[in-house]
Amino acid sequence: MSNSTELHIEENHDHEHEDYVGDKMGMWLFLFTELLLFGGMFLAFLVYYISFYTEDFHNAGKNLNVMMGGGNTLILLTSSLTMVLAITAIQKKNKFLSIFYLIVTIACAGGFMVVKYFEWGAKFSHGLYPAKLTSLAEYFGPSIIPSLPKGEAIFFGLYFTMTGLHGFHVMAGVAVLLIVLYKVIVNDIDSEKFGYMENVGLYWHVVDLIWIYLFPLLYLVA
């Protein structure tokens, strides 16, 4: 721990002191909160799946498109790879390669959302959408969820909430990745100073990590 103290003396009362390890620690602590946020949702899912509605969850899971879910898994894994490659590239002073990998990462995130859009669209057009969203009835007809067995209704409730919250995190990820891209382009991030990029990378991997569990639970329980 002596590291920070030495740094601190060097800079002698610079208010915004730089602390590479400290920043990373702060990021990890934030990621724990993300982990537990989704952890709560997974707990709800497992409780209903294991203790209440095993059969219903199987049946409801059959309505999900494994191709789309699997495709999205591939897309997210690829984007995770390009993210770390972008970091390795910047560490090895290869700015253009890093920019290329970052753009691929962002493109993958966009692709994920596009697939999600078609997937949700397909569900909506079958009348599978949360029942209280009555304004959607105009486009898709009345919601059929209230007429489903209770367990199936809960499955779709959890499906929309979990993938929705995850999708929200993907979009937030795109926003911070764009900031990283900008910082790399203007040399705010370089081979000497990449802590910010690494921390955004960590966030992006957590988004991937959550999907790693979401995919088998939602798409493969059938």
């Binding site: 390890v21 990373k24 620690m25 990890w28 602590l29 724990f32 995770s80 790879l81 993210m83 770390v84 690494e198 990378g201 960590l202 991997h205 957590v206 991937d208 990590l209 790693i212 569990y213 995919f215 088998p216 639970l217 493969l220 329980v221």
Partner: peptide, 29 residues
């Protein structure tokens, strides 16, 4: 399914998220 997912998560954590090469403090956290 959960076992395989955990293997995947372990790979992502230790390599992509660098935990394997991290400070002992962060590993413990």
């Amino acid at each position: 399914a959960m076992f395989i997912a955990t293997c995947k998560a372990g790979l992502v954590l230790s390599y992509f998220m660098h935990v394997k090469f991290e400070d002992r403090v962060i590993q413990m956290m």
